[in-house]
Design a protein around this nucleic acid. Sequence first.
DNA 1: CTGGAAGTTTCAGTCACTGTATCGAAAGGG
DNA 2: CCCTTTCGATACAGTGACTGAAACTTCCAG
Lengths: 213, 213
Amino acid sequence: MVEGVRELKKRETRRRIAETALRLFAGHGFDAVTVAEVARAAGVTEKTVFNHFETKEDLVYSEDRAFEAELLEGVRTRPAGEPALAAAERFLIGRYRRLAIDPASGDRARMFATLVAASPALRARERRIHARYADSLCALLAAEQRAVPDDMRPRLLAEALMVVHRESLAMMRAGLLEGMPGDEFGPRAVAAARRGLALLAGGFAGYAARRPG
Amino acid sequence: MVEGVRELKKRETRRRIAETALRLFAGHGFDAVTVAEVARAAGVTEKTVFNHFETKEDLVYSEDRAFEAELLEGVRTRPAGEPALAAAERFLIGRYRRLAIDPASGDRARMFATLVAASPALRARERRIHARYADSLCALLAAEQRAVPDDMRPRLLAEALMVVHRESLAMMRAGLLEGMPGDEFGPRAVAAARRGLALLAGGFAGYAARRPG
DNA sequence: CTGGAAGTTTCAGTCACTGTATCGAAAGGG
DNA sequence: CCCTTTCGATACAGTGACTGAAACTTCCAG
């Protein structure tokens, strides 16, 4: 599968649209920028934008397919005998670390934090995307474990993992918005993920929010 | 606070809109019915529909605020010393049982199952609503436990509970769509919820989807 | 009885998103 | 090297969810 001129141009168009959109959104706010304006600024038609991205929100989450593929790959190719939970932990924590170390990723993360904090529509979209990750992960686990349809464990594990991921991101973003320096918000997310995943592994029985008498 | 004629009329309008909407959606499909048609059939303006409901999807989930209030009340007023997990389990299981016993609720549930199965938009809305439940529940738990902002446990517990709830609903709906008789889909949801909540309490360490070697 | 609050209507509009027909450039086979 | 097919982008003309402002009606209070 060689990448011909056609594919190259297509990818470049897509990249240009996403980059333009992020720049405009960061500058004026997600809601204040119309898709038509993004299209115009990127030098394409509105229709072309929607040929590349399903929704306006997807313009912000243009990398999500790549993330999904890598997450699945990370879990799928884990050493034999290793629990999925541990593999997911390795993968996610590696990601958080990279975000904090790579300056470009850090800037991008900072932009994301601002955008997402200001837009309920984006938060909702993020949840939809995480739901899709969970679906894929659940399918992978169910296949691996030869789970019967009634077995809720793959589903629950996959969804719970995404909850921890989302919460870790939220903690990281909170740090970013407080102006936390670049070498601190990474460890913060890592710590959050570790705590969350430990809780998942150990269960809530020891906590379970007993009502104060 | 007496309920004057005005409030009565308003509630009646809202009820009529929701009922009309559900009837039309069930008859022709969610996407095939426009809000304008719902409004017309309910004898009001399109604008009035949007004064009562934030979005078209909310027409289907018109009872969600009541559910949220009752869930929170059920957890808030649990006996001193009881874990929140147990209180939520009691509440949810009671709900599933009622759904299966009450014929009117059963019919409504059947309609829901069909609608939700056919419409991704509705599933997405359901997730948003569950996210709101989780937010409220998390706030309640955090306040009860005097949790510090860094404590991820209230959040994780609340979100995980909603995952179990959603999965139990999914199992129930799957049963409904297979034409399962009215006295079986209730127990099925109850069993699903019990398994899910036991898993949450006990943790995934014993399962954790170890990779087959 | 009268002022005003609240629910509804009317109207005019914005904007995300879609379907269809079409164009032009780039594969690819003969 | 041409001819056909493929496919990404365009132009255009929508649909339909959702909004804001202003007027109109109905109910309640002082």
